[in-house]
Deep mutational scan, measured.
Amino acid sequence: KSAVKALFDYKAQREDELTFTKSAIIQNVEKQDGGWWRGDYGGKKQLWFPSNYVEEMI
């Protein structure tokens, strides 16, 4: 599983989504079709976030 870095702040709209700030590192990313991926951040595990808010880390 990979890690991504947030390009923008994102505030969860639902309880199954992540809230994060710009430059946050989201771990254990599971990529899905449809523009939403799952990952771990801030003590939350495998919640959804919009993939267009992040960049992949190499």
Rank of each mutant, 00 (worst) to 15 (best):
E30W: 13
Q27K: 13
Q46M: 07
W48I: 05
G35M: 10
K22C: 09
N52M: 11
V29W: 02
V4W: 12
Q32E: 11
K31V: 08
N52S: 15
G35E: 10
Q32G: 12
K11N: 14
L7M: 11
L47I: 02
Y41H: 09
T19F: 04
V4D: 01
G34W: 04
Y10I: 01
A24S: 13
K31W: 05
S51P: 05
R38G: 01
T19W: 05
A3S: 15
K11P: 05
V54E: 01
G35D: 09
I26T: 02
D9P: 10
K45S: 12
K31R: 12
V29C: 06
F20V: 00
Q13T: 12
R38Q: 08
D16Q: 08
N28K: 05
V29H: 01
M57H: 11
W48Y: 10
I25L: 08
E55L: 09
Y41K: 02
K31C: 07
E17D: 04
G42V: 04
Q27Y: 15
G39E: 00
T19G: 06
K5D: 03
L7K: 11
L47N: 08
N52I: 11
G42Y: 06
D33H: 12
V4G: 05
Y41D: 00
S23W: 13
D16H: 08
E15G: 09
Q13N: 10
Y41L: 09
D40I: 00
K45C: 13
Q32D: 10
I25F: 07
W48C: 06
I58M: 13
W36P: 02
V4A: 11
E30Q: 14
K5H: 07
K5L: 12
L18H: 06
D16I: 09
S23H: 15
Q32V: 15
K31L: 05
I25A: 04
D33A: 14
T19I: 02
K31A: 05
F8Y: 14
D33T: 12
E30S: 14
R14F: 09
F49L: 03
M57L: 15
Q32H: 15
P50M: 06
N28A: 05
G42H: 07
I26F: 04
G35A: 10
E56K: 06
E17N: 02
W36C: 07
T21K: 13
K31E: 05
E55K: 09
K31N: 02
R14W: 08
Q32S: 14
A12Q: 07
W37D: 03
Q13I: 10
K1A: 13
Y10D: 02
D16K: 05
S23Q: 10
Y41M: 05
K22M: 10
D33W: 09
N52G: 11
T21A: 11
A3T: 15
I26R: 02
K22T: 10
G34F: 06
F8E: 09
E17P: 00
S23C: 15
G39L: 01
E15K: 11
G35Y: 11
S23T: 10
E15W: 12
V4T: 04
D16L: 07
K44W: 09
G43M: 08
Q27M: 14
V4H: 08
R14M: 08
A6C: 08
W37C: 04
A12P: 04
V4P: 02
Q32Y: 15
P50T: 03
D16E: 11
Y41F: 11
D16G: 11
K5I: 15
E55Y: 09
P50D: 04
Q27P: 03
K11S: 13
P50S: 03
Y41P: 01
Y53V: 11
G34I: 05
S23Y: 14
Q32C: 15
V29G: 02
D33K: 10
E30Y: 13
I25V: 12
K22P: 03
E30R: 13
Y10T: 03
V29D: 03
G34Q: 07
V29L: 02
R14Y: 09
E56Y: 07
G34Y: 07
R38Y: 03
E55C: 13
K22N: 06
P50Q: 04
Q27F: 15
D16N: 12
F20Y: 02
I58L: 13
A12K: 05
I26H: 01
W37F: 05
L18Y: 03
F8W: 12
G34D: 08
D16W: 11
W48T: 04
Q13W: 06
S2F: 15
S23A: 12
D9E: 09
E15V: 11
K1F: 12
F20R: 00
G35Q: 09
R14G: 11
R14D: 08
L47Y: 13
E30H: 14
V29M: 00
K5N: 05
E56F: 08
R14P: 03
D40N: 05
V4L: 06
D33Y: 10
G34T: 07
G43N: 10
Q27C: 15
W37M: 06
W37Q: 02
I26M: 02
S51T: 08
I25Y: 07
S2K: 12
Q46S: 10
V54H: 00
W36V: 02
K11H: 12
S2V: 15
K44C: 11
L18N: 04
E17L: 00
Y53I: 12
Y41N: 03
D40L: 00
D40H: 03
Y41T: 04
V54Q: 01
V29I: 07
W36G: 01
A24I: 06
L47E: 04
I26S: 00
S2P: 14
F49E: 02
K45Q: 12
R14E: 08
Y10A: 00
T21W: 10
E30G: 09
Y53H: 10
K44L: 12
Y53D: 01
V54S: 03
Q13V: 11
E56P: 11
Y10L: 00
D16T: 10
S51L: 06
A24Q: 05
A6L: 03
N28T: 00
K1L: 13
P50G: 03
K11G: 07
L7T: 07
I25D: 03
L7I: 13
A24V: 08
I58V: 14
F20H: 01
N52L: 10
F49G: 01
R38H: 01
Y10M: 00
G42N: 13
Q46Y: 09
Q46F: 07
F8Q: 12
R38V: 07
D33C: 15
W36F: 08
K11L: 14
K5E: 06
